[in-house]
Simulated scan of single mutants.
Amino acid sequence: MNLQTFSDSNALNQAFAQQLLTILSTAIAERGQATLVVSGGRTPLALFSTLANTELAWDKVTILLADDRYLPTSAEHSNERLVKANLLQQHAAKAHFISLYAEAADAFAAVPQILPRVAALPTFDAVILGMGEDGHTASLFPCSQQLAAGLADDAPAVLATEPTSAPYQRISLSKARLLDSRHIFLHLVGENKYPVLQQALADTDPMEMPIRAFLQHPSISIDVMYAPQ
């Protein structure tokens, strides 16, 4: 783990955006395309705006979410709606977006339609994870009966989860698919997140705090981007 600490979220976002743009530009130069995985919520909104207003060969960039609530894409709490409104704007409007939504009876029934979209993608160039105060990341919740399946090394790229401590069924990328990335970041803003990070580093059980499966992976180093405010 590599901890990068910033005075505030503005400083973090400027530095983070530059790191991401370098990664994406390098990928495009070397392989002709780039793939970026983002997370929803309030934390990345300013970062999204900074990226959207920066010139890049966005038509060669594919963007998808690490997870989403199983809701129509027009719903208020849809992460897809948030990404389209804040990241896929300005210059970044040219990027290709892969949805984690498909119309079905429920999230579990939707997985067969969504799985091929994600399974066909190459190794990601950058993954941006978030972390809840319970130690969940993506929609891999400690309260979910699907957690063990999502953390399994041989898990499919996508699975449905049903947390008991948060609303809505979810569609989430699995640990194995998220780890298949050249760069992995954990984006944390707020003084309340630092004790959670310390707790996650203090023990090893990912079933208690799923973020541990990423922070304490034996062969993959994660960049933690942290600002107290």
Rank of each mutant, 00 (worst) to 15 (best):
A138K: 03
S7V: 15
T26L: 07
M131T: 10
D153G: 12
T73I: 14
G150K: 01
Q18C: 13
S174N: 00
A119G: 02
T123F: 03
Q4S: 14
L140I: 01
Q198G: 14
A46Y: 06
N79A: 08
Q216C: 03
L64K: 09
P228C: 11
V189Q: 07
N10E: 08
A202E: 08
P210V: 12
T73V: 13
Q90N: 15
I114G: 07
H136K: 00
G130S: 10
A102L: 04
N192L: 09
T62F: 04
D68R: 10
F185K: 06
I23M: 06
A213P: 01
H77W: 10
H91D: 07
Q18V: 14
S7W: 07
F6Q: 08
F108M: 05
T73F: 03
S139Y: 00
P210I: 03
I220P: 02
A66G: 15
D134K: 05
P44S: 04
S165F: 00
A66L: 05
I114K: 00
Q145W: 00
A119W: 01
Q90S: 15
P122D: 09
L159M: 03
F6S: 06
L21G: 13
E133R: 05
Q229K: 04
T123L: 13
A29P: 07
S172W: 06
M1F: 01
S165L: 14
P206R: 12
D153L: 06
M207I: 05
L188G: 06
T22P: 05
H217K: 00
L24K: 13
L215N: 08
P167A: 15
A15C: 08
L12H: 02
S172H: 08
L186E: 03
A120G: 05
P112W: 01
Q146Y: 12
L56H: 01
G32D: 05
R117N: 14
Y194G: 02
A157E: 09
P72E: 12
R170M: 04
R117I: 06
I220R: 07
Q145E: 11
G130H: 04
S25P: 01
I28D: 02
T35W: 09
G135W: 11
F214N: 08
L82R: 03
L56P: 08
V224I: 07
Q198F: 11
E30C: 11
A11H: 02
P206S: 08
Q199K: 13
Q90G: 12
D180S: 05
I128S: 06
A166Y: 02
H183Y: 08
T123E: 11
